[in-house]
Simulated assay, not measured.
Amino acid sequence: MTEKVKEVAGKGKGLAGEFREFIMRGNVLDMAVGVIIGGAFQKIISSLVDDIIMPVISLLTGGIDFNNMFVSLDGSEYATLEAAKEAGAATLNYGTFITVVINFILMALVIFFIVKFMNKLSNKLEKEKAEAPATTKICPRCKSEINIEATRCPHCTSELD
């Protein structure tokens, strides 16, 4: 290899080396995994909101279809938003905005409850770990970790209390 190629391929040298160093950082990989999982999770939440929660809200509001709430800016009356779009009319689609806001609030609420559940589960697991009896202790002389029942340190051979 020429000196130029060696310099570019070397870790921390040249653009390629800097990029390799950047991409191999743990936090970049964690972020990439988070984005991928977040995309898949977003589809699950969207399905929950669109297929389960919104039909219930539609029942509670008497079957109101927010998507067909609009104002035609050309002054004409249209039965549906689709009919107005087919006619080429400019529309102010406030119903679609209301639907998106409701979806956002519901998604945020679902995510809140999932995070709350995960935090509760995590706290429970931490409590269980904290309550587990100690199985090791530290030697006061050499500071090595040893069995809690040991009477003599296997590292420095000092007698223990």
Rank of each mutant, 00 (worst) to 15 (best):
Ile98Phe: 12
Ser144Asp: 03
Asp30Cys: 05
Phe97Leu: 14
Met24Cys: 14
Leu92Lys: 05
Ser47Ile: 03
Ile37Asp: 11
Phe113Arg: 02
Val115Phe: 07
Arg152His: 03
Phe66Trp: 11
Pro154Asp: 02
Thr80Leu: 05
Tyr94Trp: 10
Val35Thr: 12
Lys120Ser: 15
Asp65Lys: 14
Ile53Arg: 02
Leu81Ser: 13
Gln42Trp: 14
Ala108Glu: 01
Gly38Val: 03
Asp74Phe: 12
Thr91Gly: 11
Leu109Pro: 00
Ala150Trp: 02
Phe19Thr: 14
Gln42Glu: 11
Ile102His: 00
Asp50Ile: 04
Pro55His: 05
Ser158Arg: 08
Ile64Ser: 01
Val49Tyr: 02
Ile102Ala: 03
Asp51Gln: 13
Met54Gln: 05
Asp30Leu: 13
Ile23Gln: 13
Phe70Asp: 07
Cys153Ser: 02
Pro55Arg: 07
Glu77Arg: 08
Thr96Pro: 00
Phe97Lys: 07
His155Glu: 05
Arg25Cys: 06
Val56Glu: 11
Ile102Tyr: 00
Val100Leu: 12
Arg25Gly: 14
Met24Lys: 13
Ala150His: 01
Ser47Gly: 13
Thr96Arg: 12
Asp65Val: 11
Glu145Ile: 06
Asn147Phe: 05
Tyr94Lys: 00
Cys139Ala: 04
Ile53Gln: 00
Val101Ala: 14
Lys120Met: 15
Phe112Glu: 10
Pro140Phe: 03
Ile148Asn: 10
Val56Ala: 08
Arg152Asn: 12
Ile98Leu: 15
Met24Arg: 15
Ala108Gln: 08
Asp74Ala: 13
Asn68Gly: 06
Leu48Asp: 01
Ser76Ile: 03
Leu59Asn: 12
Ala32Arg: 07
Leu73Phe: 03
Leu109Phe: 15
Leu121His: 07
Ala89Arg: 10
Arg141Ile: 09
Ala132Lys: 15
Thr157Met: 10
Tyr78Trp: 06
Gly38Ile: 07
Ala87Asn: 08
Ala132Ile: 01
Glu131Leu: 13
Ile23Arg: 12
Leu106Phe: 01
Phe113Trp: 08
Ile114Cys: 10
Tyr78Ser: 07
Val100Ser: 04
Glu145Cys: 00
Ala130His: 05
Thr151Ala: 07
Gly63His: 04
Ser76Pro: 01
Ser58Lys: 14
Val100Gln: 10
Phe19Cys: 05
Cys153Ile: 05
Thr80Lys: 04
Met24Glu: 15
Gly63Gln: 04
Val49Trp: 02
Cys156His: 09
Leu48Phe: 11
Asp51Ser: 13
Val110Leu: 09
Leu73Asp: 02
Glu21Arg: 14
Glu21Val: 13
Lys129Cys: 00
Phe19Arg: 11
Ala32Asp: 01
Val101Leu: 15
Leu81Phe: 06
Ala83Arg: 08
Lys127Ala: 11
Gly62Met: 12
Cys153Asp: 03
His155Arg: 09
Glu18Leu: 13
Thr135Ile: 09
Ile111Tyr: 10
